[in-house]
Amino acid sequence: MLFYSFFKTQVGQQVTVELKNDLAIQGTLESVDQFLNFKLKDISVVDEERYPHMISVKNCFIRGSVVRYVQLSPPTVDTALLQDAARREAQSTQQQQQQSKPPTAATNTTAIATATGSVS
């Protein structure tokens, strides 16, 4: 959820989204969701001579999975805050993993016991 939260702070900023097919689209970030799909408004294609297909497109939705990069403007990014958030995220995902381990093993044993019990 770290980058979802991060991109929510970028809403309203000018960004350049570079896709896996090398198309680069510049525009204002309108919204973002948990899959890192983006909606951009007032868009322009960075290399219009090579990609003239979208000249008349003003707004677009970009599926998260086709994104390679998003270029951001540095003054809008609080790097110290980002690093803190990344450390917290790393810690919380690790804790979730540790919590989920012991119950899984226990559940399996009971499941086997129940299964053998029901057969006999």
């Binding site: 998260g64 270029q71 403007s73």
Partner: peptide, 11 residues
């Protein structure tokens, strides 16, 4: 060169 860049993890 890019001053600030988000990189999607699947690449």
């Amino acid at each position: 060169k890019v001053p600030m860049l988000f990189v999607r993890g699947d690449g």
